[in-house]
């Protein structure tokens, strides 16, 4: 009897809570569904801004055009290389740097702020600074350094375009990794490290057996969040190389922009958008499986 009553009460609060979250859930759904539905719709019709009156249904034609576009496969591989390299660089360097600045030294506070600050610079500004002040083959800082040592200055964006972009984006995202990992390190138990020292562990053993496992979860978070943003990387490419030379720095986001705004083909750009969404989901699936599980289970 009493269980019946409590069940009833439970049910009613259950419904109440459902009712109360309704507005926000439906807002979110509309927020996501409408653009997605429109993208799906546009991707199946002929829709070029140069010929706006002719909107015939074309089925998967936009998709086949997008996939057969000469920029498609370079776009995919560039996207993966970009995301992969930036992740690798930011996680490895981020871990090492945050561990280094975690031991107290004079000026620690300033150094930490300096390490974090690149993150607060807008991506476009960041890319422009790199392009015009650092990597410029004539007036850039790097060129001066090269000349100082008597070497021929490198024309970065012409000779190593993708590498240059990776460098710029890593510089932008390294602070994010450092910020998260540095914060996580503060909660690393001091006595555990002391116990390990008594047990005969050197700095490498402590790093490997205590620090790294402790950082597993924040590293996962860094990888997840960075992946989401890096898959749609755009501003840095737009302001520096414009996707070139050729397709060497064209990623999927840039390819879609290229279709939509340079060729005025909304239909094909939408098809590209859908392909990108599918790819992002596949990537997320594998990431969560591979990285998320193996690392968090370690706890």
């Amino acid at each position: 009897m009493s269980s019946h009553v409590s069940n009833h009460a439970k049910n009613s609060t259950h419904w109440m809570s459902r009712l109360l979250v309704m507005p926000s859930v439906s807002m979110l759904l509309l927020w996501m569904i409408i653009p997605l539905a429109m993208t799906l719709y546009f991707s199946t019709i002929q829709y070029n801004l140069l010929y706006p009156e002719d909107n015939a249904f074309v089925g998967f034609e936009n998709y086949s055009y997008f996939i057969e576009d000469p920029g498609f496969w370079p776009g995919i591989s560039n996207t993966l290389i970009l995301v992969g390299s930036v992740l690798l660089i930011t996680v490895v360097l981020g871990t090492l740097i945050s561990v280094l600045v975690n031991t107290p030294f004079w000026g620690q506070g300033i150094v930490r702020i300096l390490l974090i600050s690149p993150f607060f610079i807008m991506p476009t500004v960041n890319a422009l600074v790199w392009k015009n002040l650092l990597l410029h083959p004539v007036s850039g800082v790097f060129a001066h350094v090269w000349r100082f040592f008597g070497a021929e200055p490198v024309d970065w964006f012409a000779q190593y375009p993708l590498f240059s972009i990776i460098m710029i984006v890593s510089w932008q995202w390294l602070p994010f990794a450092i910020l998260l990992l540095m914060t996580a390190l503060q909660s690393l138990d001091q006595e555990q490290q002391e116990a390990a020292r008594l047990d005969g562990a050197g700095i490498w053993s402590i790093f490997y057996h205590l620090t790294l496992p402790h950082l597993a979860r924040p590293i996962t978070v860094v990888i997840m969040i960075e992946t989401i943003f890096l898959l749609s990387l755009f501003a840095e490419i737009f302001t520096t190389t414009g996707g070139g030379p050729g397709y060497e720095t064209t990623n999927l986001a840039y390819l879609i922009y290229d279709q939509a705004l340079l060729q005025y083909d909304v239909g094909m750009a939408s098809a590209g958008g859908v392909v990108a969404v599918v790819l992002a989901n596949i990537a997320a699936f594998f990431l969560i499986r591979a990285v998320g599980k193996s690392l968090t289970d370690h706890k």
Binding site: D189, E191, Q192, E194, A195, A196, L198, H209, L210, P213, H214, H298, K299
Partner: peptide
């Protein structure tokens, strides 16, 4: 050649 037991136990949480 000394061993210490800490107030917080300081066990290695991942092992």
């Amino acid at each position: 050649d000394l061993a210490m037991v800490f107030q917080s136990y300081a066990l290695y949480p991942h092992m």
